[in-house]
């Protein structure tokens, strides 16, 4: 089972509430903290069923469905990934490098009833085997209002060095 070969659809907002940047930030920071604390199961619940999580191998506006990505997860793939990361059998993730990340420099890219798109910057420091590494990325979020609160519908993490050699990453960005 891999991510579907068909182009993704996005979730339609089911609640016409205006989402403020402060509300979006709260969700983004909740997500950041869950990822740093390995709260992967709770993290799954932050997503819509249609949601896509993408880490491309190139910077720019290419279409991830026809390009190679570092990570391109629909709902099924996200669940399998979390299963892998929490299984205890993935050598790179048992335990993963520790991470501390901040997300900031927020700009509202689009806003309409029930939906907000936000651009931000993420600086992450990882630590393992006496070594720290910094991973910087531009991140875009598409957040929709649902009956169950705000949910992530799309997250694209474009690494500053997306097209250069990285290293094995045993956690989520």
């Amino acid at each position: 089972m891999t991510t579907s070969i068909f182009a993704p659809t996005t979730a339609t907002p089911r609640v016409a509430q205006v989402i403020t940047l402060a509300e979006a930030q709260a969700l983004i920071w909740q997500e950041a903290e869950l990822l740093d604390t390995l709260g992967y199961k709770a993290w799954l619940d932050l997503w819509t069923a249609e949601g896509y999580y993408v880490i491309p191998t190139e910077r720019g506006d290419g279409d991830p469905v026809v390009q190679l990505n570092l990570l391109y997860d629909d709902d099924a793939m996200r669940r399998m990934r979390v299963k892998r990361l929490t299984s205890g059998f993935a050598m790179a993730s048992s335990p993963p490098a520790r991470t501390v990340r901040t997300v900031s420099r927020f700009v509202v890219a689009a806003s309409e009833p029930g939906l907000i798109a936000v651009r931000g910057a993420q600086i992450l420091v990882e630590y393992k085997y006496d070594r720290t590494r910094i991973i910087a990325a531009d991140v875009t979020y598409r957040i929709v209002a649902t009956d169950d609160g705000l949910k992530l519908d799309q997250k694209v993490v474009t690494l500053i060095n997306a097209d250069d050699p990285l290293h094995g990453i045993g956690y989520l960005l």
Partner: peptide, 8 residues
């Protein structure tokens, strides 16, 4: 770097 195999 983020596959199900390579990081391990």
């Amino acid at each position: 770097p983020l596959g199900f195999g390579t990081p391990d």
